[in-house]
Nucleic acid binder design. Sequence first.
DNA 1: CTCTCATGGTTTCCAAAGGGTACCAATGGC
DNA 2: GCCATTGGTACCCTTTGGAAACCATGAGAG
Lengths: 119, 119
Amino acid sequence: MRGDAFDPDCPTRLILDRIGDKWSVLVVLSLAGGPRRFTELRRRIGGVTPKVLTQTLRTMERDGLLTRHVFAEVPPRVEYALTPLGLSLGRPIQAITDWAEEHVEAVVAARARHDGLPG
Amino acid sequence: MRGDAFDPDCPTRLILDRIGDKWSVLVVLSLAGGPRRFTELRRRIGGVTPKVLTQTLRTMERDGLLTRHVFAEVPPRVEYALTPLGLSLGRPIQAITDWAEEHVEAVVAARARHDGLPG
DNA sequence: CTCTCATGGTTTCCAAAGGGTACCAATGGC
DNA sequence: GCCATTGGTACCCTTTGGAAACCATGAGAG
């Protein structure tokens, strides 16, 4: 059975933990078009704080999803780029965002129905 | 551009927050085969605590992803089942788990390379 | 020489979420 | 009365997420 993700010891869980981070998802989407600098990412991904963005990027680097290239310049320049592995992750992520855009209305409606239920 | 998920005010973000919960993902996978009871889910999804499972199920119900059916029996019986909306979410989620199973080795290897790098 | 600006973070602090354990209500069996 | 089962809830603590401030470096302005 493929769904051994149910076993907490299965490494697949480890992936879900990665996907289960909305910032990682947004970083993958942001880098899909090519390398970007830290501040670019920060501006592009609305609402992310530098600390969390750094954490996210470092973890993704550790997991082999992206590379971090520091240029010895002033002011500093650091470019982040997806590895082939990270790039391949873009496809399933795109499937999620496609689903999201298609069904977001239904979810919002369900939520409104539930929350605002007048009795 | 479809990636308006970058805007924190875009409702697509709301979906990512949902997907961005590994327990929701596992619940969808668990219910893909048909309705299940609370304790079944709890046993099937290794490592989830009842509190968190309840939270997850309630949120998913609110979002229209599943239904909760309480039978007036003793001991109590509660069945959870995916709605068509929840069922449709199974496809992109499957894409993620497929990716995970295919590339988990690479991620684990990258992580080991990074962590254990002897110098 | 000092002041300012820009970049790519780090540090500190606080609130929120996640998770573990214990417990509850209702009823059947013993 | 006591235990077991089910589907949770309550309590508490640790971890995480997030806001805001600060830092090092060097160029350019004054």
